[in-house]
C-alpha cells in the first residue's frame, strides 16, 4: 500500500490531520474523502487524535485586551447564516461525516496564507491612496480582508455564495449579501474617522490585510466614533506633533505621532498607562519615520490615566527604562 510511491491518496491521511499538506495535496486528499466513507472515518479519527495533542499543551492566559478587542469587534463582524448553500460548498461540505471537515473547509484560505496573496492585491492597491472618498470607496471593495476568513478559494464555505463579492463593488450586489452590509459600512466609517485624523498614511496601514492592523483600525474608529471621544495634543521632546485620542466609556485610547523618527532594530517605542498604581505597558510599536505613526493602546484605560511613550529595547520592557519622549494627561 505504501510502496505505491506518492500516488496513494490515503497515505496523506496523517499529514492531512496534522495540517502538514500544501494546498494541492489538501485538495487531492479532500477529493479522496468525498469518494471514500472509510477515508472520512479515518480522517475524523485522526483529526480527533491531533486535537488530543493540542489539548495536552499547557494553556496560556490571554491578555485582558484580547477579549476586550474581540467583544468590541463582534457587533461589526458578520455571522454566517445557519445553513450553507449546498451547491456552492459541495466539495467541502459533502464529506460531512468527518469532524475535520468543517473547520478545515473554513480555514483553508485565510487572508494570511501565502496562497491567498492575490486577495490582498486590492488592499495593497490602496496603499498610496490619499484619504478621501475615493479611498473610502476602495475600502468597500476590500471589506473582506479584515473580516472574511478566506475569500479566495472557490470551494471555501464562507464566501462561496458570493465568490467575487470582494472584488466587485456593485452596491446592488453587495446589498444582496446580508452579512456584508454592516462590515462595509463599518469600514467606511472607520475610513472616514481615520481620514479625519491621519490621512493617507493611516489608510495605507489600515488596509493592510494583517488582522492586527485591521483590529487596530477598528479600535481607532471606535474611539473616534464614541460619543465621549476626546483628544489632547502636545509635542514630543523633539518637537513632533503628538495626539492622544480616547474614550473613557470604551476605556481605550490611541496615540498618534507625526514624523516620529525611525528606531534601530534593537529598539521599540513602548506605550504606557501611568496612574497611582504605577506604569503598565500598553504595547510597542515602531515608526517608518514619515507620516503618522499610531497605535491603539493595549489594555484598559482608566479615566485620568496618563499615557506615556518611551524608547525601550526591542520587544519592550516590564517597566519604563527611559524618560518618556511624550506624555499626555487624559
Amino acid at each position: 500500500m505504501t510502496d505505491r510511491n506518492d500516488a496513494h491518496p490515503s497515505d496523506l491521511a496523517g499529514a492531512y490531520a496534522l495540517h502538514a499538506l500544501d494546498a494541492q495535496d489538501t485538495a487531492a486528499f479532500e477529493a479522496h474523502l468525498i469518494e471514500s466513507e472509510r477515508a472520512r472515518i479515518e480522517a475524523a479519527e485522526l483529526n480527533d487524535t491531533a486535537v488530543a495533542l493540542g489539548l495536552a499543551v499547557a494553556p496560556v492566559q490571554p491578555s485582558a485586551s484580547l477579549k476586550v478587542n474581540l467583544m468590541a469587534l463582534l457587533a461589526s463582524t458578520p455571522q454566517l447564516p445557519p445553513v450553507p448553500a449546498p451547491r456552492a460548498v459541495g466539495t467541502t461540505d459533502a464529506p460531512g461525516a468527518a469532524p475535520a471537515v468543517p473547520p478545515v473547509a473554513i480555514t483553508t484560505a485565510p487572508t494570511a496564507t501565502g496562497g491567498s496573496t492575490a486577495g490582498t492585491t486590492p488592499v495593497n492597491r490602496s496603499t498610496n491612496m490619499p484619504a478621501s472618498v475615493a479611498a473610502a470607496a476602495d475600502i468597500a471593495s476590500v471589506d473582506t480582508a479584515p473580516f472574511g476568513t478566506g475569500a479566495n478559494r472557490p470551494a471555501m464555505g464562507i464566501h462561496a455564495a458570493e465568490p467575487s463579492g470582494a472584488e466587485r463593488s456593485s452596491a446592488t450586489e453587495r446589498a444582496q449579501v446580508r452579512w456584508f452590509k454592516r462590515p462595509v459600512q463599518f469600514m467606511l466609517a472607520a475610513a472616514a474617522a481615520a481620514a479625519l485624523f491621519v490621512g493617507g498614511t493611516f489608510l495605507g496601514q489600515a488596509l493592510n490585510a494583517d488582522p492586527f492592523e485591521a483590529q487596530q483600525a477598528s479600535a481607532l474608529a471606535q474611539i473616534n466614533a464614541a460619543d465621549d471621544s476626546q483628544r489632547a495634543a502636545t509635542t514630543t521632546a523633539d518637537g513632533q506633533e503628538a495626539t492622544l485620542v480616547w474614550s473613557n466609556k470604551l476605556a481605550i485610547s490611541a496615540v498618534l505621532v507625526d514624523n516620529l523618527p525611525v528606531l534601530g532594530g534593537d529598539q521599540d517605542y513602548q506605550l504606557w498607562y501611568i496612574n497611582a498604581a504605577g506604569a503598565v505597558s500598553a504595547g510597542t510599536f515602531d515608526s517608518s519615520g514619515d507620516g503618522t505613526a499610531w497605535r491603539v493602546l493595549d489594555g484598559t484605560m482608566h479615566a485620568g490615566d496618563q499615557v506615556g511613550v518611551t524608547v525601550e529595547p526591542n520587544g519592550g520592557s516590564d517597566q519604563p527604562t527611559s524618560s518618556p519622549i511624550v506624555a499626555f494627561q487624559s
Binding site: L66, L70, T77, L80, V83, A112, T149, D210, F212
Partner: peptide
C-alpha cells in the same frame, strides 16, 4: 494573540456551521 483573535472571530462568524 493576534492569531487567537482571528480564530475567535472565525468562531463567531462560523458558529452556525
Amino acid at each position: 494573540e493576534e492569531v487567537t483573535q482571528e480564530i475567535f472571530l472565525e468562531v463567531w462568524q462560523s458558529a452556525s456551521r
